[in-house]
C-alpha cells in the first residue's frame, strides 16, 4: 500500500512538472514548483515507511521549511527583481509572519537530524481495522493528490489552477499523512508526521497567498466566469 501511495505521488509530481514546463507565466511555474515541493515532502515521508527508515521524516520536515522559503524567495525576486529588496511599506501578506517561528524551529531541528527511536510499522501489533483505515486513507490521499495534479493541467488560468493545487495540498497531503500515522501508532514517528501536517497547513496558505498577490501585482488578470462576463444570467 505504501507503493500505491508512492505511485500516486509520482504521478502527481509528473503532472506538476508538465505544468511547470508549460507555464505559461512564471507564477504558474512557481505554483507547480510549490506543488512539486509538497509532493517531495510526502514522498520522503512515504519512502521512509517503504524502506523502514524513519530518518526520512526529519528530511521531510526540513524540506517542507525550505520549500516555503524557496517559494517566497522566487516570488520576491520576480516581484521586485532583487532578493534584498525591503518590499513595500504595508504590513506583510497574511501569515508570512509564521515563518520566523518556523525557521527558528528548523535551526533547532538540525543538530539531531536523523535520529528517531520509533520504528514505523514493525513491532506494533496493529489491528486489522487500523490497517484497513490506513489503507483507505492512503488510497484516498493518493486519489486527491492526482486529482489536484489533473486540475493543475485542466484549469484555464493561473488563479483557477491554484484552487486545484490546494486540493492536493490539503486533503491529498492530509489523508496520506493520516494513513501513515495510523501505521505508526502512538510513537514519536506519528508526532513527527503530525508536525509535517501542521507545517503544510500553516505554510501552504502563506505561499498561496503570496503567489496570488504577486500575480495580481504583476497584472495577471483573473479569467472571470460566465456569470461575471455575460452578466445576463443573474
Amino acid at each position: 500500500m505504501f507503493a500505491a501511495a508512492t505511485l500516486a505521488i509520482l504521478v502527481t509530481l509528473a503532472l506538476a512538472i508538465i505544468r511547470a514546463i508549460l507555464g505559461p507565466t512564471v507564477f504558474d511555474r512557481a505554483q507547480a514548483g510549490n506543488t512539486t515541493g509538497t509532493m517531495a515532502v510526502l514522498l520522503l515521508a512515504v519512502i521512509g515507511f517503504l524502506n523502514g527508515r524513519p530518518e526520512f521524516l526529519d528530511l521531510a520536515i526540513v524540506y517542507g521549511l525550505l520549500n516555503l522559503v524557496g517559494t517566497i524567495a522566487v516570488l520576491k525576486f520576480f516581484r521586485y527583481g532583487d532578493l534584498g529588496d525591503p518590499g513595500e511599506a504595508e504590513p506583510p501578506p497574511a501569515a508570512t509572519r509564521e515563518d520566523p517561528v518556523e525557521r527558528r524551529r528548523a535551526s533547532q531541528a538540525s543538530p539531531l537530524l536523523g535520529r528517531v527511536s520509533g520504528k514505523p510499522g514493525g513491532g506494533h501489533p496493529l489491528t486489522v481495522v487500523l490497517d484497513i483505515a490506513s489503507w483507505i486513507s492512503l488510497a484516498g490521499g493518493g486519489f486527491f493528490c492526482v486529482v489536484g495534479g489533473i486540475g493543475l493541467l485542466r484549469m484555464p488560468d493561473f488563479y483557477t489552477r491554484m484552487h486545484a493545487a490546494s486540493v492536493t495540498e490539503t486533503l491529498g497531503a492530509g489523508l496520506i499523512l493520516l494513513g501513515l500515522m495510523l501505521q505508526a501508532g502512538f510513537t514519536l514517528v506519528a508526532v513527527k508526521l503530525a508536525i509535517i501536517g501542521m507545517l503544510i497547513l500553516f505554510t501552504s496558505p502563506a505561499a498561496t497567498n503570496a503567489l496570488a498577490k504577486a500575480g495580481m501585482a504583476r497584472g495577471i488578470e483573473p479569467l472571470l466566469g460566465p456569470r461575471e462576463g455575460a452578466s445576463s444570467k443573474r
Binding site: Y159, S166, F202, S204
Partner: peptide
C-alpha cells in the same frame, strides 16, 4: 485576520488575494 485569510485559502475553491483590516479580496472557483 490572518486566521480568517488563511482559513479561506486553505479551503479548496477559495483563495484570499488581499487581506487587510478593511477588506478581503477573495478569488473563488
Amino acid at each position: 485576520l490572518v486566521t480568517h485569510a488563511n482559513s479561506i485559502t486553505l479551503t479548496p475553491g477559495t483563495i484570499t488575494i488581499e487581506a487587510s483590516r478593511d477588506e478581503f479580496l477573495v478569488h473563488a472557483l
